[in-house]
Design a protein around this nucleic acid. Structure first.
Lengths: 362, 362
DNA sequence: CCTCACGACTAGATCGATCTAGAAAGGCCG
DNA sequence: CGGCCTTTCTAGATCGATCTAGTCGTGAGG
């Protein structure tokens, strides 16, 4: 069934049938009803989306690029909330989301073949979800000369970007712990690069990673230390391979028993998921939270307030962030001017996973 | 930039440029290189996906229909895992996923307008993700006469379906609790219908809900009770408005202190998320799990083994389920024969959230 | 020397709509 | 009654590719 056949059947022109669907005011109500009724009878599901999209130069979909497999990306509930915000904003123009995620690491898959998915996708624009610098997906998206909005990173691309004030967030978290009297801190870090490494990150890795967000959050923690003015504060940076509790627990465990210097009394985690992992690891070692170990998270996901203990964390407006990315894409599609960078505020939410350290040291 | 312009620029025909991209064996290697190089210079990103899709009658995307907003759908990590499995399977044909979710309830949005998103989506087929019977999205998808695969429900549509053996799962879970000596059970239920109601579900609602999966899981619990042969076993059915811990905790709390009869000693939850909510609610009331209350989940999501206490639950092969749905769609797209229903097995995983009840009652 | 096969490339139809410009029919006014 | 609007509908071009059925050389075989 095509619009053409329906037109012939009803005895009108193609244009009139098209108008019945798209410009009701262009034909008499009676004829329109007749056309739509006959369409229903013949099982015509409406104008072919591809033909329409080709002609209109708009298909009603925006691609979302994830630099990692979906199960990793959604291991953090924050991703779902952001996506929901995005969908809400795009809803107004009835635009759908096309998910494009990197495949699971497999020798059979060449990167070039991978980026082809981006090149061949039927979308009007792109949202890049916090992706490693230089990822082939992002290159391919930019090559299409379509609107692109970047969530968080990478920042080097000249495309409009929505970010959260990362440095300020970890600065607040770290300052909170320093204020409580902690001196030996572990920074439980998101990946610095997408190579799956975890454990102690040396300075070289800290400063040259491909995940900019991680670098910024670390910088925030460092600045809190610098501002405190106290000498001899230890900041042990422990990297997790993935943003999930299991990765975090595995990575942090060796450092909880005995850090390189004194055992740490507090953990600054770069996400709530990592914080949950740290708490789980502490429990497994018989350490009480916050009695023996204080933990601060980042995000304030839905589960943070109800966890055991309720998590002290840095709140960022997740849903708002997705919505903002959506309106930005909409603005770009309608060729309205947009801001190059929008930075959303953060806020420290103090709950019960932080407390002063048990025994003060000199 | 179009293929046409590139062809003119290089001095060959449209067809040859097309062949350079799609049929390398149809032209000399030298010419092909020349064409692709010139394309890169001119910033031609490759053949327009919509034009290609129109001609080929295939766009390389499958729509995934969610009957609720994305943030609800992804509140359960199981959704992400299933989606990942689906993406993996479709990866082999380089097919992407288009997410279509119902909007957040708002008076401004009419259902008819909503289904239009399905009618107008550029996809080759559909996966219906565990959706309420008679949802307008599903109707619209069927009207397109394209391949449809259904996950779990609804079953009344004649489309191929992948389901998990729900009744067997809750039967195992309930039998496990009965075997431990529990006699007063709460069934913590997924929604029976999409109307957001929660609390005690009467028999009328239990039997006539629009969510078939819920009915089947309840039937499994009932059959375990029937098989046990013991008289006087209480089965209190408490419905949650949404599949998330907060909903579950709120719904179950009033029944933990004092059920309609004796206070319950065990909870059969229809998902791990609901089980987590029950555990949280029990804690808030000062009840120990499993000391005062045993809890069984369903799904065995990633967090179930590491939760506090490790959750006894019914394992279903989540990723496998997504993958299977994917291969089914692929089979339909290639017009290979497929099974009408595939039922995947479940398995009871006993961990530490269940124990015999404290005080035996006559 | 003629035919035939083969490799390399192309003309033109086609996919299924939308859109612009304009035609036919009917109503209103002077 | 003729001219001028409106309303209602249509012809034909267009969107940007792919695909079928060729054409045109060129070298091998008889």
């Amino acid at each position: 069934m095509t619009l053409q056949l329906l037109a012939r059947d009803v005895g009108v022109s193609r244009a009139t049938v098209s108008n019945a669907y798209n410009h009701p005011e262009q034909l008499s109500a009676a004829l329109r009803v007749r056309i739509l009724e006959r369409a229903a009878e013949l099982g015509f599901p409406g104008p072919n989306p591809l033909a329409r999209g080709l002609r209109r130069r708009r298909i009603g979909a925006v691609g979302v690029i994830f630099g990692e497999p979906l199960s990793y990306a959604f291991a953090d509930p924050a991703a779902a909330v952001i996506l929901d915000g995005l969908a809400q904003a795009l809803q107004t123009d009835r635009i759908a989301l096309l998910l494009l995620a990197a495949g699971h690491p497999a020798p059979s898959e060449t990167p070039g073949l991978d980026a082809q998915k981006v090149t061949d996708a039927a979308v009007d624009g792109w949202v890049v979800y916090s992706t490693e610098e230089g990822h082939p997906f992002v290159q391919a998206a930019l090559a299409r000369h379509e609107p692109v909005v970047i969530l968080d990173q990478p920042s080097s691309l000249g495309a409009p970007r929505v970010e959260v004030d990362s440095a300020e967030g970890t600065r607040l978290a770290t300052a909170h712990l320093l204020g409580l009297g902690h001196r030996d801190l572990v920074v439980l870090s998101l990946p610095f690069a997408g190579d799956g490494r975890s454990g102690l990150a040396d300075v070289r890795r800290q400063d040259h990673g491909t995940f900019e967000l991680t670098r910024r959050r670390l910088a925030g923690a460092r600045s809190a230390v610098a501002e405190s003015g106290s000498p001899g504060i230890e900041l042990t940076v422990v990297e997790c391979a993935h943003n999930d509790p299991a990765s975090a627990a595995a990575a942090v465990t060796p450092f909880l028993e005995q850090g390189p210097g004194a055992p740490p009394t507090a953990v600054v985690a770069m996400s709530d998921q990592l914080a949950f992992g740290a708490i789980r690891a502490a429990r497994a070692l018989g350490l009480a939270v916050p009695g023996d170990l204080s933990v601060v998270g980042f995000d304030d996901v839905a589960g943070a307030a109800g966890s055991e203990p309720p998590l002290t964390t840095v709140r960022q407006p997740l849903e708002e962030r997705g919505r903002l990315a959506g309106t930005l894409i909409l603005d770009l599609l309608h060729e309205r001017p947009v801001a190059a960078v929008t930075t959303l505020p953060v806020e420290l939410v103090v709950r019960s996973s932080t407390a002063p350290p048990k025994a003060g040291r000199p």
